[in-house]
């Protein structure tokens, strides 16, 4: 019976990370609009957008190759498999054990690799500019992220997320300088990886400032729907990641009973809403950076991550 329960929970989690991302996006946009004194679209608008895109007949550039067609499916598959590995409301699920945090980052890197290639496939200058900048940002964000992983692995003695979450929920953690540093580093990396302000503006179509939008410029219809869903899923993934590492108390173990699971799921929805609110507040209060200021911004994350790791290497107490 325990196994069946676990499988059901796993199924709920898999569909959850598939269905909730547009809601997170909708909430963020709604709050952002309210902060700007606009009414804003409904929080369910992203679902409608995705459905509309899905039903439309896609237009394909004339010299697009098979890679261009296959890329959206691959991007979606890589992102979904990464998102499934992150505990959302329950920990210790079956799939969560098969790979660790390093593998999650690598799966996201694989999705980005394919997306950047797709951007270059048609042979337009905008695709190239997007791919080139995306890879530059990734080249700086990834080492910072790895430093965060190192810090967590040193504190919790593991790179498996369920073990990290269990350790962070226990009383053994305490307040640590290195945790604070890695939290800030993780926030910066999350902003950069998801193409949010101040690194990239998800709402703009001003050619010379965009990164993500430039890469997907040639996509339409169901292909675009898949890519948009994948990028929303990536945002959800980072929110879940931050939630599971730094606010792990509401997570339940897989054998925790149904009541606890439902409660934990509601808490998770609460976390998502809060994250959307914080993100909206942050984005409305800051301006986008010039592209070549972004490396400095990300280097701050790298340095904080490195400092956090060094502190731990020097002494277990920090």
């Amino acid at each position: 019976m325990v196994l069946i329960d676990e499988l059901i929970l796993q199924g709920v989690q898999m569909t959850g990370v598939l269905l909730l991302p547009p809601l997170l996006l909708g909430v963020t946009r709604k709050i952002k609009a309210r902060l700007l004194r606009r009414r804003g679209a409904s929080v369910f608008q992203p679902y409608r957008d995705l459905l509309r895109l899905l039903h439309k007949r896609p237009v394909m550039a004339e010299n697009a190759s098979w890679l261009f067609r296959a890329a959206p499916y691959l991007i979606f598959a890589f992102t979904w498999s990464a998102a499934v590995l992150v505990p959302t409301f329950a920990t210790g699920l079956v799939l969560g054990r098969s790979a660790d945090l390093v593998a999650i980052i690598a799966l996201l890197a694989a999705a980005r690799f394919v997306l950047a290639l797709a951007g270059m496939d048609v042979g337009t200058s905008f695709g190239g500019i997007g791919s080139s900048r995306e890879m530059m940002i990734a080249a700086l964000a990834e080492p910072a992220m790895m430093m965060v992983v190192f810090t967590l692995a040193l504190i919790a003695g593991s790179t498996q997320l369920f073990a990290i979450a269990a350790y962070m929920a226990s009383s053994a953690v305490g307040l640590r300088v290195s945790l604070g540093l890695s939290f800030l580093a993780l926030m910066i990396v999350a902003l950069a990886e998801n193409g949010r302000i101040p690194v990239d503006n998800p709402a703009t179509h001003l050619e010379l400032t965009m990164v993500h939008e430039a890469m997907v410029l040639e996509y339409s219809g169901r292909y675009l729907a898949l890519i948009e869903l994948a990028s929303a899923m990536k945002l959800l993934l980072y929110v879940s990641l931050i939630g599971c590492i730094f606010l792990p108390w509401t997570l339940v173990p897989a054998a925790g009973g149904w009541g606890a699971c439902i409660l934990s799921f509601l808490f998770y929805i609460g976390k998502l809403t809060a994250a959307g609110a914080v993100l909206a507040l942050f984005e409305t209060s800051i301006a986008k950076m010039r592209v070549f200021r972004v490396p400095d911004f990300l280097n701050v994350a790298l340095m904080m991550g490195l400092l956090a790791t060094l502190l731990l290497f020097v002494s277990k107490g920090f």
């Binding site: 899905l54 237009v59 550039a61 004339e62 010299n63 067609r69 219809g221």
Partner: peptide, 22 residues
């Protein structure tokens, strides 16, 4: 799964057109 769903519920075979490029 993604390919199946997109083909099943998506709007027909892609149409060829010149690149958009803004």
């Amino acid at each position: 799964v993604a390919a199946f769903v997109a083909r099943r519920f998506g709007g027909g075979a892609p149409r060829q057109a010149p690149a958009w490029d803004c």
